[in-house]
Every structure is written in C-alpha cells, then in structure tokens.
Design a protein around this nucleic acid. Structure first.
Lengths: 139, 139
DNA sequence: TATGATTGTTTGATATTCAAACTAATTGTA
DNA sequence: TACAATTAGTTTGAATATCAAACAATCATA
C-alpha cells in the first residue's frame, strides 16, 4: 500500500500543478475558463452542434447556450444554421477564435517543453509510452 | 516538433481525463468543487489560517471566507481563534471533515489502482520516477 | 396530419469568483 | 506612548457558471 500511496501523491501533485498552470494561463487572456475550454474543443474537433459541444464540455446545453452567447458577442465564434435541419446550429470559430486557439496551443507546447527539459530523452520516451497506455485504457 | 506535439497531446488528454474524473467524483458527494478542494488542502496540510488556505486554493481571501462559511455551516470545518494574534483564525477540519477527506483520499487511491492496472511494474516505477522529477522541478 | 422525439433557448435559483471598501488587530516608529 | 502603516479577515456589489425544468421550433413517423 506504500507504493500506491506514493504514486497517488505524485499523480495528484502533478494534476494540481497542471491545473494551476492552466488557470494562470487563461487569466492572462480576456477569456473566462469556460470560454477557453469551448474554444479549445472547437479548435481541436472543428465545428459542431450545441449538444455535442455541451457533451465535450460536460455541462448542459443551457449552460452552453450562455457560453456560446458570450463567445459570439466577443467575436470568437458564431452560430451557423444548417439547411437540412433547422433545429441545429453549428458552432464555428471565427478568425479571432482560431487565433486564440493557436495561441493557447502554443502555451501548451511551452509547458510541454518545460516538462521535457527536466527529463532525459529516455524518460521522455517512457512518458509518452505510459501516457498513451493510460489514455487509451484507464479512464 | 512532431514528438513535442505528440507529448503535448497525450499530456492534455491525460489532464482532461483526470479532470473530468475528479469532477464526477465530487458530484457524488454533497460538496461543491471549491469545498472539496479546501477539505483536501486542510486534510493534507493540517490546520492553517485563512490567508494560507487562500494561497493554496489560488483564490482571494474574500472567496475563501465564503467557502469556509459554507464548510462551517455544514460542519466540515471550524474557525479557531489564536491567543497570540486575534486577527488570525485557524481553520480546522471537524470529525465530519476528516471523514470526508479520508473518503476522498480513498477515491484517489482507486483511480491510481485503475491506472496501475494498465501498466507493467516496470512502467509503474518509471512513472513514479518521472512524476517526481516533474513535480520537483518543472512547475 | 397528429404524436412523440430532438435541438436549442429561456428562466429562476444557487454557487463561484474578484476587486475594492471596510473592520479589527498588530507592529513599527518617532 | 501615540499615531501611522501593515496585516488578517469580512463584506459588498458585480460578473460569471451552472443546473433543472419549462418552453418553442423543428423533424420523423405512424
């Protein structure tokens, strides 16, 4: 039980470090946390309807309506209607939204580099390998 | 730049998985996210004054006042005054608060076990080693 | 075409957070 | 010792986040 506790501790320390880094990065932008998350999802997966976005965000469609309202008002995203089904709105990043996504991605790369700088190239390979396994199977 | 991108992707996938797991665990309790965080910090580090707790939480003391108010109302924590400096309130977990901390810790251990189950014992050791390095040096 | 399902919005309520103003207590200094 | 500056914590006012439930519009189908 000792090694388990040790790993638990290191895992959650890592998670908390990541978490506060992420928050401090978002605070430097003019986006709220939920807006930033929405942009990240839209940038990663491309345009999608409200319900899908809500699913990715892990919140209700009501909450997502509010978030997208604000993104639209600030010109980071817009709703596009679909001829085939007029109930559906596809949410799309604007130029400004894509720019924000690119910037955010650059921050992520910076953190990865920061992490890599304390690891040997062997450990780097081990980490990728381990994360792939965990991401594919553990959650 | 290719391997960097790959690691970035795996890191943030891992972080997001962790994040949504954490949220879903908290939702099963009668605690809010901020209350759960406060309990985790108090359980890990023991009693501390408002300002220190606010620092650990990464929020202002005003926000922390509200959080501790609720924890006190629900009997998870209490404020204790200090003779030497009557401005200071030490926040302490009650029995109920310690119980909640123990339960939460158990959930954490469960997730660690879940993660370990997809790794070999060699990878397990690699992971601990890597996380220790990152936690000590990278953030 | 009527009925039921789906998509998204609105509403009302509670929670979260911050900055700034404020109170109380302590410390430094003249 | 008295007064100014600092520190700890609370309160206030405003913006944001979130949900569940009610709602409107549209679609699918029987």
């Amino acid at each position: 039980m000792d090694s388990l506790d040790e790993l638990t501790h290191e895992l959650f320390t890592f998670f908390n470090g990541f978490s506060s880094w992420e928050n401090s990065v978002i605070k430097t932008s003019e986006l709220s946390v939920s807006e930033a998350h929405a942009i990240e999802i839209l940038g990663t997966h491309g345009q999608m309807k409200m319900k899908t976005l809500a699913g990715h965000l892990g919140v209700t469609t009501g909450t997502t309506t509010v978030t997208v309202d604000r993104l639209e008002k600030k010109d980071y995203a817009r709703r596009e209607s679909v001829k085939e089904d007029r109930r559906i709105h596809l949410i799309t990043l604007t130029q400004k939204g894509q720019q924000a996504f690119a910037e955010h991605h650059q921050y992520h790369s910076n953190l990865t580099e920061q992490i890599l700088s304390v690891l040997s190239s062997e450990e780097n390979e081990q980490l990728i390998n381990i994360l792939k396994k965990i991401n594919a199977e553990a959650f």
